[in-house]
Structures are given as C-alpha cells and as structure tokens.
Amino acid sequence: MSEEMITVNMTVNGEAVSKTIPVRTHLVDFIRTELGFTGSHLGCEHGVCGACSVRVDGDVVRGCLLLAAQADGCEVLTIEGITDTGEISDLQEKFVERNALQCGYCTPGMLMTAAELLAQKTEMSRDDIREYMSGNYCRCTGYHAIVDAIESINNERLGG
C-alpha cells in the first residue's frame, strides 16, 4: 500500500505548526524530526520506559503511543516548552543540585511526569512519589536522588 499522508495542525510549545506527514508517524517522531524539538526521547517505543513523556491538552502521555494525527488540534508541551514557561524551574534546579540525573536521557520524561505529580499540591510520602513515578525508567541513578528532588520541591511548594 502507498504511504498515506495527513496534514496536522497543532500548537507545540506555544507555537502553531502545520505539517503534512505520513499518518503512521507517532507524536514524538513528529516533534523530534519535523519540528526539531529533540528533548523528548525514544527509549522503547512500546510505552514502557517513559522517556517520550509529553503533555497533550494538559495531561502527561506516552508520546510514542499517540499518532501525531491524533494530536491534531491539540496543545502539546514538551520539556523545551515547560522549561520556557518556568513551571518547573524549581524542580529543574533541584535536579541539578541533587544530581537527580546522570546520562539525562530519561530526565525530560521524568520531569514531565513529576510536573503532573507536583501540580497535585498534596502531602506525599517517598513511597507515594515512587509509585507515581513508577512508569519512568532510569538506568543510571538508582532513583533515590530523583525521589529526594521531587520530595524536597513538593515540601517547598507546600511551604514546608
């Protein structure tokens, strides 16, 4: 069969984009190769590792499990966009200070997921953090430092 193309329009990191792409293109391939936002990574392309986590219409999702065509008309935010808005600048600084990343490949996805957790603005234990973040794989850190960073920002934001 021939390659079916589709024109998609969406807002990515605050900018309206319009591109004609093969319908089979998943969202993160689209964002990376068509738009050049390379902060979202591909680790498994089957929904397990979480490296491709992006925000679509306010919710964090696996970017490899969504066709770009499905995001037509949506607001998409990647690590680059969320960095620009400053929404998690405190968390990003804490990740650096606490060395809650090593190779950095999981980090954008980790931060996108943590952003959603921190937006809940509730008390949480280390176990709560670990459970919420359990869909994001990191091979380097052993996770302890990531839990530390998220815990400390949550406490700061709650005024602790």
């Binding site: 680059e80 990740f95 650096v96 950095g104 980090t107």
Partner: peptide, 21 residues
C-alpha cells in the same frame, strides 16, 4: 559541585547522537 551537563539535560537540551541529523 553540580555538573554543567546536568543543567543542559534538565532543559531538554542534551545533545545525543539521534539529535543530530
């Protein structure tokens, strides 16, 4: 002391091989 590469990575501005085309 903090790592400069970490500052770049948390902003999604790491540069891995697949980011180069």
């Amino acid at each position: 002391l903090p790592r400069s590469r970490a500052k770049r990575a948390v902003a999604g501005r790491g540069r891995y091989t697949d980011d180069i085309t």
